[in-house]
Amino acid sequence: MIKNISNLGDSALYCDFGTEVNKQINSEVIKCFNNIRKKKIRGVNNLTPSYNKLIISYDLKVTNFKDVKDEIEKINESEIQKITNKNLEIPVCCDTSFSLDIKRLEKKLSLDKDEILENFFNQEFFCYMTGFIAGMPFLGDLDEKMRVQRLETPRVKVPKGSIGMTEQFANIYTFESPGGWNIIGNTPLEVFESSKEKEPNLINPGDTVKFKQISLEEYKSYNE
C-alpha cells in the first residue's frame, strides 16, 4: 500500500509505494490507480502510475492538496479490486533488417543470437507501466543474463514498432521517436492506435505479454 504521500509542487500528490522495482509493489500501484480512477475524485485530472509511485494531479482551480489527500486516505484497502488483466501475444520479426542491435547484444551478453532469441521468446512479460511516449509499454522482467545498459549514444530515430531492451525491461516504440534502448526486432502490430477515441493502447499496466517470433514473410503479409 501507499507508504507515504507528499506534494509534488502545488498540483499533485506523490504517492510512494517503496523503492524496489518488482511485480508485487507494481501490482499495488496498479490496483490503487484503477481504484482511484473509478472514484472520479473532484478536481483530479490525471494519474500516472509507474514502477513504485503513483502521481495524482489535480486542477488547483477546483481543489487542493489537503482535500485530495483526504479523499485518497479514505479509500479502504478492502474495497480495492483485483486487477482484471489481459494476456497478450505480440508478433515480432527479428530479421537482420529489424534487429538493429543484435551484434551489440551478442557482445555485451556473451550469448549468440539464437540463445538471445530463445530466452526472449520463451518468457512471459508483465506490463509495469505505459508512457514516456504515447502507449509505450514497459515490460519486465528480463532474465538476469539478458540485461544490458542503454546505448551510449541514443538513436535520433528509432523505427516505429521496434522492440527494445534495457536492464530488466523490454519496450515497444509505438511510433518513431528518439531512444536509446537495444533494438532486438520489430512488430507489425499497431500497439497504439491514435485514431481510437477509447483505449487507444493495446497493452495496459498489469497485462501479461508473450512475444511470438514471426518470419519476414509473415511480417510483410501481417497487415494485408
Partner: peptide
C-alpha cells in the same frame, strides 16, 4: 531514479 511520472513545471 526509477522512472516515474512527470508534470509540467517539474
Amino acid at each position: 531514479i526509477k522512472s516515474e511520472g512527470l508534470l509540467k513545471g517539474v
